[in-house]
Design a protein around this nucleic acid. Sequence first.
DNA 1: CAAAGTTGTCAAAGCGCTTTGGAATGTCGT
DNA 2: ACGACATTCCAAAGCGCTTTGACAACTTTG
Lengths: 345, 345
Amino acid sequence: MNLKELSSLLGLSQTTVSRALNGYPEVSEKTRARVVKAAQAHAYSPNTRAQGLATGHSKCIGHVISVSDSAEMVNPIFGDFMAGAGETYAAHGYDMMVTRVGAQDEADTYLSLKARGAVDGVVVHAPRRNDSRLALLDKIDLPYVVHGRSTGIKRPYTWLDVNNTRAFSEATSYLASLGHRRIALINGPETMDFAIRRRSGYESSLRFAGLPIDPALMSTGEMTEGYGHAQANAMLDMDNPPTAFLAASIICAAGIRRALDERGLRPGKDVSIATFDDCLSYFGNGGDQPVFTAWQSSVRLAGAAVAQMLIDRIQAPNAPHINELWEAEFVAGTSTGPAPDHSKD
Amino acid sequence: MNLKELSSLLGLSQTTVSRALNGYPEVSEKTRARVVKAAQAHAYSPNTRAQGLATGHSKCIGHVISVSDSAEMVNPIFGDFMAGAGETYAAHGYDMMVTRVGAQDEADTYLSLKARGAVDGVVVHAPRRNDSRLALLDKIDLPYVVHGRSTGIKRPYTWLDVNNTRAFSEATSYLASLGHRRIALINGPETMDFAIRRRSGYESSLRFAGLPIDPALMSTGEMTEGYGHAQANAMLDMDNPPTAFLAASIICAAGIRRALDERGLRPGKDVSIATFDDCLSYFGNGGDQPVFTAWQSSVRLAGAAVAQMLIDRIQAPNAPHINELWEAEFVAGTSTGPAPDHSKD
DNA sequence: CAAAGTTGTCAAAGCGCTTTGGAATGTCGT
DNA sequence: ACGACATTCCAAAGCGCTTTGACAACTTTG
């Protein structure tokens, strides 16, 4: 069923039927009702491609997911972010297109998306420092919103980020205030802007507390469970091991916890763990009784909000850029406690 | 840059340019080379929508993700499956469209996808028993491939599944052979076909081993870490607790493990854990030294294979239906061991 | 050397929609 | 009763591509 058939069926012109369905005022309410009813009865939905061709926009939003070829790692927050964004898109009649790409072909992918008119805008995921994608997107005039920020980019752009610096600064101070003097940072990949900010928050709090900054207590890598486990193991083997860990994600934290368990160390007693928590739907932090002491911020809500910002941006491309900085919320869990007293050792 | 501009720039007709780029034989190699070079120089890519309108297919594949409104749960395998599928799509010039939908609007979403001509085919995720989507898709003639199977559907359809029955039967036998007589099943949602099969594999091996089937040792639910933890805790509180757990996913297994750790029970010594493992990129099973004894099958590879099957199906809609049943691979971890000897209790 | 293929190219139609610029019809003031 | 003005509808153009059918310009054949 297409427009032509439907309109001849109704004895109306295509123009009138189209206007009736799209809510234009120059069609009487009587005929509009008639048209709408017939459209429903015949399950008519305008052909997306034809509509796009005619209007010049695709009502589709692109998400380019860079999969590092080395690690072949899919960011675990991906699913929840998409779920949040998808909700917003559905509410506004937008489709969502996902493109998986290796790091090399990143630029080409955006160019192609633009040249082919496949999307009206894109969400930039996992921004790096001085991320070259932003200049590219500005140049080719493809609307975008950044989930995160890119330090070093001076031109304004629209972004939504969590205050990672603050969260990791608070977390470090919190652990220091519990008496911990050897606090390890199990960070995400420090090619990512958020990881850089997290480290800087961590370091500034260490300095503020008068604690040394020890590179041996800092690690960077893909945020897998195995990574958390391996790093914790390596650090706990040190002569002067950390008494507290600060993890980049709850999945890392789980790995750290496993390392403790294997050694018979009690989390929150012998060794503390604090973590950032993205509120992943399949890996909750224990609900009523949080397991991990955490700074949390829902990536799902972020997805919904970023999607909304992008839709707004597409509809008003010349509006001033909006920036949202969300504060992570502190939850006290059982994974942290006072630094163990070694005076009796 | 569009076809018209490019062709007038070259002093050729649109026809010739189009044919040259699409590899038709009736254009001389000399002009073809000229056209290809110019296209590259001007970064010309045919407009997706126009191309789609003209050819009648969208070169786009749909993934409809049902998010149960109650649980608001995003399946954690989603990201890895997409990464695998995305690779295949990219190689064949297909785009990937993702639609998030609540359980109610599922049927409408497929109808709309079809009516709008938005996709050439869809992947059916998480099939249920007697899944009504298959009949719907057959009726509206939208090509599809099922990731999993749907018990009760008699008409042939194309699917790729893991032999869940076998895997869980083997796992149960394995645990029984270690002397476990109280083996708990921490299953996924038993509205899902795969979970039903897993249970039946589990039960058949219990029967075969002459062990009783105790509903108190079986649970069903969304496969979160918290779920695994809660179920394990509840069961370990029983008068006659299980000595082994069989988990539906490595994430559940992590939760079970946490429950053991909290109680000072040693995995593989006091209580065993076996699990199914989807080989999630962010939650590996320890690499060289597997943590969990597991039956594993890469969901990423499944994604790539399903995508390929769907593309084939779209290109040859009348070809016979293909079914692939993959066997899960056994890996021995440290999480299982002989049932503890209670004779000295 | 005319008739019959080949080869390389093109003009134009068509995909299903939106939108422009009329054109009918009806209503109203005078 | 007549022009003015809304109101309601429509024919046709156009979005950027593919594809059909035709046509020159060459080759080859008898």
